[in-house]
């Protein structure tokens, strides 16, 4: 059996990669993908922990819901990014800064 710590390490790595992507990519879609990485890190955790939660298996339920909601969020975000492209002709977030102080 794979020890729990391995799951956690992988999930932490995923999470970190996600954050890195979110912070560094010059493309909104890539940011979205980074967010997906982070979400999946969490979902992996849930599933892994759920093994030790025999009775309720809440973790698994949680993972399912999270996948669904993540999909919805991504769909909405993609639509919005599309819209942005319509007006800015770019999806580089560093160039989309009309709203600022």
């Amino acid at each position: 059996m794979i020890p729990l710590s391995h799951y956690m390490l992988i999930s932490a790595a995923l999470f970190s990669i996600g954050i890195y992507a979110v912070l560094s990519k010059r493309n909104a879609i890539m940011i979205l993908i980074g967010i997906e990485f982070m979400l999946n890190a969490a979902i992996l955790n849930f599933v892994a922990f759920s093994k030790h939660d025999k009775f309720a298996a809440s973790g698994q339920v949680f993972a399912l819901f999270a996948i669904v909601l993540a999909a919805a969020a991504v769909a909405v975000s993609l639509a919005i990014i599309l819209n942005v492209y319509k007006y800015y002709k770019t999806i580089d977030p560093t160039k989309i800064d009309k709203l600022r102080d």
Partner: peptide, 16 residues
Amino acid sequence: RHFQTGRLQHYLLFMI
């Protein structure tokens, strides 16, 4: 106000 650069990734970076 200097932190309110209008760039999303700056915001996230500052936050973290």
